[in-house]
Design a protein around this nucleic acid. Structure first.
Lengths: 243, 243
DNA sequence: CATGCTCTCAATGTATACATTGAGTGTTCC
DNA sequence: GGAACACTCAATGTATACATTGAGAGCATG
C-alpha cells in the first residue's frame, strides 16, 4: 500500500542528479563540450559533491559524458559521424531483437496480439492524424515508445540484448533532437514500424529483421539529410565508453 | 609522446579498487551472490569508502554486480540461462563486427594483412601445439585476445559497437571460467576463428558473418554441454544494466 | 620581446564525520 | 505462548574536510 509512496521517496539525491543531468544533456540544455565540474553542478543542483560524483560516473557509463584529460569531464559530442557509428550498433541490436521478438510471438499469443495491435495503430498514422494539434508529435513518439516497450517485454529472456538496446535509446533521443523529422518522414517511419510490428506478430523473424534493416536505413538517410555533413573521417574518436 | 608515462601514474584508488574487484569476480574469488558491502571491501582493499563506492558503480554498469533490494549489492549470478542470453547479444554484435571489419579490410590493406596473418596462426593451432606445456592454454587465449584487438582496431569508426563488444568480453571471461573448454573444442574453435579471420581478410562480409554465426553456435553448444542445465525460464532477470 | 620557470589556486581524489533508514531482536502485553 | 511494538545497530546516503595534482598567470631572464 505504501509501496508507491516509498518508491517516490526512495529516489536518492544521486538518482535525481543523474536524471536532471541526463535530461538536460539530451534536451541540449547542457551543450556538447560543456564542462562538467563537480562543485559547479553540486551548487546548481543543490546537493553535495558526492551524489554528483555518482551521477557523473553514470553519465560516463551511459556515454553522455567523456573524460577529456585526467581531470576534465565534458558533455560528449554527437555529430553526423557519431550517428553513423550509433546506427552500426543499432542495426546489429534491432535486427536481432526483431528476430527474437518474432520467435517469441510465434510461441506466445499475447506477444503476437500486442504487436498485431501496434501494427494496426502504426498503419493508422497518416500525415493528417500527425498534424492534429500536436506540434511536437508527442502522440507519435508515444506510440514509438509503446513499440519499444513491447519489444522489451518480448525480450525478457534476453536481458543483455535488452540492456544494450536501452543504452542506445538515450543516444537516439539526442539525435532526434538534432534532426527533427518532418511530417513526411514521420509518416514513412510509421509505415516502416508497422511493417516490423506485423512481421513480428506473424512470427516471421527474417522478415522482421529485413523490415528493421530497411527502417534503419531510411531513418539514417533522413537524419543525414537534416544534419550538417561532418567530414567522414576527420572526426576520429567521437565517444569512448567504459573500459 | 609522454602519454604512456602519464597514464601509468594516473591510476586512482578507485581504478585499482574496480580492477581488483572485477578480477576477483571474474576469477570466481568473489562468488556469485556474494554480498558487496562498502565498509568490508574498503577495509579489505585498504582504501576508504569513497573509491569503493565508485568501483561499485562501475561494477553495476558492467553488469558484474546487481542491486538486490534498496541497500544490498551482490555479485551478479551467471548460469546457463544467462549464457544463452549473453549469446543472443553476442551474435548480434559479433556478426555486425565481422561485416564491418571485412568492409574495412576491403578498403585497407593493413587490416587485410593483419587478419590474413591471424588466419594463418589460427590454422597452425592443433591439438599437439595446444598441449605443449600450457595447461591453462594461455597461448591460445592470447591469440584470441590478439584477434579481439585486431577487431577493435578495425572498428575505430564504430566506437559504439566496439564499446558494446568490449562490455560483453568481461562476461565471456566469466563463462569461460565456468566451462573450461577441452582440447578438442579449442582446436575446433581455432579453426572457426581462422575461418572468420580469413573471410575478413578477403573482405567478404557475409562470409565473415556466417562464419561468426557458426562459431558462436558451436561455442554455445559446447558451453551448454559443460554446464549444469539450469531450468530455461525459472531464472527470470539475471542482470540489469544502467537505466 | 619571447621564453621558461615558479607560484598560486582551483579542481578533483580521498577520507571521514554525520544523517537516515531498514532489519533484526528483545520485551511486553494479550 | 504468540504476536506486535519499540529499540538497537549496522549499513548506506550525504556532506564536508583534507590531500594532491594540474593548469594558468605573472615574473624574471636571455
Amino acid at each position: 500500500m505504501d509501496a508507491a509512496v516509498q518508491r517516490a521517496t526512495a529516489l536518492t539525491s544521486a538518482d535525481r542528479a543523474f536524471e536532471t543531468l541526463r535530461t538536460q544533456i539530451v534536451e541540449g540544455e547542457l551543450a556538447p563540450g560543456a564542462p562538467l565540474a563537480e562543485v559547479e553542478q553540486a551548487t546548481r543542483l543543490g546537493v553535495s559533491r558526492t551524489p554528483v560524483r555518482e551521477a557523473f560516473a553514470r553519465l560516463i557509463a551511459a556515454g553522455l559524458a567523456i573524460e577529456r584529460g585526467p581531470r576534465s569531464l565534458v558533455v560528449s559530442h554527437i555529430d553526423a559521424g557519431d550517428v553513423t557509428a550509433l546506427f552500426d550498433l543499432r542495426r546489429a541490436l534491432d535486427e536481432q531483437a526483431a528476430r527474437l521478438a518474432a520467435a517469441r510471438a510465434a510461441a506466445d499469443p499475447v506477444t503476437a496480439r500486442d504487436f498485431a495491435d501496434l501494427a494496426d495503430r502504426f498503419r493508422a498514422v497518416t500525415p493528417s492524424t500527425l498534424a492534429a494539434d500536436d506540434p511536437q508529435r508527442h502522440g507519435y513518439y508515444a506510440l514509438v515508445a509503446e513499440f519499444d516497450a513491447a519489444l522489451d517485454a518480448a525480450l525478457t529472456r534476453s536481458p543483455y540484448l535488452a540492456a544494450a538496446i536501452a543504452s542506445t535509446r538515450v543516444h537516439l533521443a539526442r539525435v532526434r533532437r538534432l534532426a527533427r523529422d518532418d511530417d513526411a518522414r514521420l509518416a514513412a517511419s510509421a509505415a516502416e514500424h508497422g511493417a516490423i510490428a506485423r512481421a513480428i506478430a506473424d512470427g516471421d523473424g527474417e522478415r522482421a529483421a529485413a523490415a528493421t534493416r530497411l527502417h534503419l536505413h531510411e531513418a539514417l538517410t533522413s537524419i543525414h539529410r537534416h544534419l550538417p555533413p561532418a567530414a567522414p573521417s576527420s572526426t576520429a574518436a567521437p565517444t569512448k565508453e567504459h573500459a
